[in-house]
Design a protein around this nucleic acid. Structure first.
Length: 826
DNA sequence: GCAAGGTC
């Protein structure tokens, strides 16, 4: 039997399908799918199935000096037992083995790991290696027709990276965590990729903090031409004879403004018309995909997770790729034809099919790993995708369209005029050839109309304006710009960059989006800069890359490289160990600063966000145990101290991070006072159980901080109505006749007018009607249309509907899905 | 309980 090993199950299935001409059968053994046909078996790994770690005697953080890790041995152990077991069993029966992992460095290492597992079970079977860049019939068949050998040097380069990363990461992470006595869940981590990334964010914050704004002025005039006006901006030539619009001196600005204001006309001095070609974008690699998705509002991690789902479902190609050049096997015409089946794409396909020839753009990165991200010929059916998934899918499809489309053409018109010696300019732009924008609507195509004027023409000045402005601090990195910057610096990989950012959030190093560093992050970067500069610099990766190349080319050995690296780390620890106390003190101070809310109303010491032994968060006094003042925090989510402060209590507001349910809790002292006020105010009879059991409705506050109108017989009666999270609730004397409940008014500092909520039952019914079917998971725009046609337009309709009946009358909707929606609707 | 790299 010949055994084929791929990097992932998906690839195994598709390769089996190609090589067997569709005749492979699937056999599930030990929880792993194995594809078989003729004398062949094909199994997919799950990336690395073995991992590096220290021997168990190094696992206790307190028993082992972190510096010892610099010289500790590193071992490999299986991390995916079931796959390893099946692989070994198959290897025992194999006469020959073919490694078909991804065609990149990490793929070579994963291939070598598979090779070693095979050898443990079978000493003799010959092992070969095939390489292909995309799983197409041509590439796969020709790769298998001419197999090669594993590149052990290339794999060793990858192993060196594993060892260096583990040793540095673990040793420095343990050192900082121990020095700050943060050894539980909240350890303080350091690493070759995460730390330089964090430093990018910290450096930017330092620039912002050091930024000193400067005043300047800009001047504008409206010029008249044929009854309409267009805006022109004042400019002058600075010392270097270059055009400048910002006037840095107020007197100069006022003087120029006086000239403009007093001039009746401006004389056109020059008119320049130019056409500019606007080339269509290159195919998507991971970074550019993330960037495009981020302009649609998707965070990097979310975009990747949707892309992953679309890939697994077979609608798009593999989303982790560096490549921006389509493979030769890709036939655009064929793919367009398949995509034309979707109504939404038909118009765009028609535009492309009308072109004389279909030639795709090429990006600068041409790599062997995978094709650029593009749609496949398998299209999703209506209702298969959620709204978000559809939006991302459409982006990928349209990017593919754009890469085949014509360039766009802009006409730029530049008019320079003079008003009594003051220069004015207007830059117009007009899209004359829509080109790829017709099929890819994600880039702005705003035009700025400047009319055709002639040199020497005199234009009336309709209005003159002066605007006082200030220079702005540099912008923070958004997630996608951070990922692009990491790529430019060569740190992280296509598969890991977005995870690194998520890791920084998890570790309490950054908050918000765009991310801002915490005090802890600042302290970690400072400590690293002082004692282990290499680990926060991009150089560490650059040096390692150079060493890895040397290993791959046989110029250096793995041992030489790791030995050298261990020695550098040894020397770093000489200095670190001496400053342990000092570093720990600084880290502890910064940790406290991140948790500090403001003065304790009882004793004046600091109030801090703390965690109970049970793991729940609360606000406690730094003066504990002398001062026992505490305040509760909501039970959902992780608290983050915000910049905003409550004026009444001088306390910082708190935000609770809980994924999509994240909310601002506000000042904990205000919340506690409000809770005391609103607790259990009885407002009227419970419509559900009053007649029978005498239950009454009351305004209540839950532990999570949210309020609701609930029945006093809870939990026997679960009747409840929602209430807004913020604001004081006033119970008025006006009663709703239908429900016998008082009308409520919400007074919220954030809004000028109080909100007349009215009877809470009427309010809820109106809300449900207004909301319609929006916001229910799984109901996209198309499904919504179909349901409306069947008479289901709002939540009440949905709640009353008979699931089986709906399933019968609405195509493509199962009773099970309807019941899901009904469950989600409340 | 550490890293970074695969994959889900």
């Amino acid at each position: 039997m010949e055994l084929i090993i791929t990097e992932k199950d998906n690839a195994a299935r598709r390769i089996a399908d190609i090589l067997s001409e569709g005749g492979a059968s699937t056999e599930r053994s030990g929880g792993v799918d194995v594809y078989g046909w003729g004398g062949r078996r094909c199994i997919g790994l799950s990336g690395h199935v073995v991992g590096v770690d220290f021997p168990p005697e190094y696992s206790d953080w307190r028993d082992v000096e972190p510096a010892e890790l610099a010289d500790a041995p590193v071992t490999k152990t299986p991390t995916q037992e079931s796959i390893v077991n099946v692989l070994k069993r198959l290897a025992r029966e194999a006469d020959s083995v073919i490694i078909a992992t991804d065609y990149d460095r990490e793929g070579e290492l994963i291939g070598k790991e598979a090779y070693e597992l095979v050898r443990e079970a079978n000493e003799d079977a010959p092992v070969s290696r095939v390489r292909f860049s995309s799983i197409t019939e041509n590439e796969v068949k020709s790769a298998f027709a001419d197999p090669d050998d594993l590149d052990f040097d290339l794999a060793a380069a990858g192993e060196a990276r594993q060892i260096v990363d583990l040793i540095w990461g673990a040793a420095l992470t343990r050192f900082l965590s121990l020095s700050a006595r943060q050894v539980g869940d909240d350890f303080i981590s350091v690493g070759r990729v995460q730390s330089p990334t964090l430093k990018l964010i910290v450096d930017k914050e330092r620039e912002i903090e050091a930024f000193d704004p400067e005043d300047y002025w800009e001047l504008f005039a409206d010029l008249e031409k044929d009854e309409s006006t267009f805006e022109a901006q004042y400019f002058y030539l600075d010392e270097d004879d270059t055009e400048a619009e910002r006037v840095w001196d107020e007197d100069d600005a006022e003087a120029a403004f006086d000239v403009l204001r007093e001039a009746a006309t401006a004389v056109v001095e020059s008119v320049r018309r130019r056409t500019r070609t606007d080339d269509p974008p290159a195919p998507f690699n991971t970074t550019q995909f993330i960037r495009a998705a981020s302009s649609l509002g998707y965070a990097a991690g979310r975009a990747m997770s949707i892309a992953e789902d679309l890939y697994t479902a077979g609608y798009i190609t593999y989303p982790r790729t560096d490549n921006t050049v389509y493979p030769e096997d890709l036939d655009p015409a064929e793919l367009l034809d398949a995509l034309s089946a979707e109504r939404e794409f038909a118009d765009s396909v028609e535009i492309l099919e009308d072109l004389d020839e279909l030639s795709a753009t090429r990006g600068d990165e041409e790599t062997t790993d995978h094709p650029p991200i593009h749609p496949t010929a398998d299209l999703p059916n209506e209702g298969d995708l959620s709204e978000d998934e559809w939006e991302v899918y459409e982006l990928v499809v349209r990017r593919f369209f754009a890469t085949l489309a014509e360039p766009a053409e802009w006409e730029h018109l530049r008019v320079v005029a003079s008003a009594d010696g003051a220069s004015l300019k207007a830059n117009g732009r007009r899209l004359v050839e829509e080109g790829y924008h017709a099929v890819y609507p994600y880039f702005g195509t705003d035009e700025n109309h400047v009319p055709a004027v002639a040199e020497g023409e005199e234009l009336a000045i309709a209005d003159a304006r002066i605007e006082a402005k200030q220079t702005q601090p540099p912008r923070r990195y958004g997630q996608s710009r951070l990922i692009e910057t990491m790529e430019g610096m060569g740190i992280g990989t296509k598969s890991t960059r977005h995870n690194v950012i998520e890791k920084l959030y998890d570790r309490g190093y950054i908050e918000n989006d765009p991310p801002r560093p915490t005090r802890l992050a600042m302290a970690v970067v400072e400590a690293a800069e002082e004692y282990a500069d290499l680990v926060v610099s991009e150089e560490m990766t650059a040096d390692l890359e150079a060493d890895m190349t040397a290993i791959a080319e046989g110029e250096k050995s793995l041992d030489e490289v790791t030995e050298e690296s261990r020695e550098i780390l040894d020397r770093i620890f000489d200095a670190l160990d001496e400053s342990r106390e000092e570093i720990g003190e600084h880290l502890r101070e910064s940790l406290k600063a991140d948790k500090r809310l403001g003065p304790c109303p009882k004793c004046g010491e600091d109030l801090l966000v703390r965690r109970s032994r049970q793991g729940s968060y609360f606000v406690g006094c730094d003066g504990y145990p002398d001062c026992r003042f505490t305040l509760p925090l909501p039970s959902t989510g992780e608290p983050v101290v915000l910049e905003a402060e409550c004026e009444e209590h001088d306390l910082h507001e708190v935000k609770m991070l809980a994924g999509r349910n994240t909310f601002v809790h506000g000042c904990p002292l205000c919340a506690a006072e409000e809770a005391a006020e609103t607790e259990d105010r009885i407002i009227g009879p419970c419509p559900e159980c009053n007649a029978e059991h005498g239950g009454e409705l009351a305004i209540r506050r839950l532990q999570s901080g949210s309020r609701l109108v609930g029945c006093t017989r809870y939990p026997d009666c679960e009747y409840s109505l929602p209430l807004p999270r913020r604001g004081d609730i006033e119970v008025t004397d006006t009663y709703c006749e239908e429900h016998d409940l008082p009308e409520l008014v919400v007074h919220d500092e954030g809004s000028e007018e109080p909100w007349e909520l009215g009877c809470p039952i009427c309010n809820y019914e109106e809300y449900r009607e207004r909301r319609g079917l929006d916001g229910i998971e799984g109901i996209g725009p198309k499904t919504k249309e179909k349901l409306a046609a069947a008479g289901i337009e709002d939540l009440a309709d949905l709640a009353d509907a008979d699931a089986e009946g709906v399933a019968e009358s609405v195509e493509g909707v199962s009773a099970e899905r309807v019941r899901d929606w009904q469950a989600n609707a409340d």
